[in-house]
């Protein structure tokens, strides 16, 4: 899987401002439901802000781990890396 791929996302905005990824679609049409968020982190490297989500999902009966990112300034989601 290529790094840093843009994705379409359905996410949940909590009342306290927290943002949680729920379900996303890759360019090829594959839909992935996020089954669990293990950890979230704020990245401000070089002054550019991104929210990092270390997630899991069940795909074809197998559990996959991957990292999603929300780019704050451009309001975009990317699949940063899949392991």
């Amino acid at each position: 899987m290529e790094r840093n791929t843009p994705i379409e996302m359905i996410s949940f905005c909590q009342g306290d401002g927290r943002l949680r990824p729920l379900r996303f679609r890759l360019a090829d049409g594959t839909v992935v439901r996020v089954s669990r968020v293990d950890e979230t982190r704020l990245l401000e490297a070089a002054g550019v802000t991104a929210l990092l989500y270390f997630c899991r999902a069940q795909i074809a009966g197998r559990e996959l781990r991957f990292q999603l990112r929300y780019l704050v300034k451009s309001h975009r989601w990317v699949l940063f890396e899949a392991g």
Partner: peptide, 12 residues
């Protein structure tokens, strides 16, 4: 530095 940092941390 900023360029390097951006490419590494944000572009992977």
């Amino acid at each position: 530095s900023w360029e390097a940092c951006y490419r590494r941390e944000h572009l992977g």
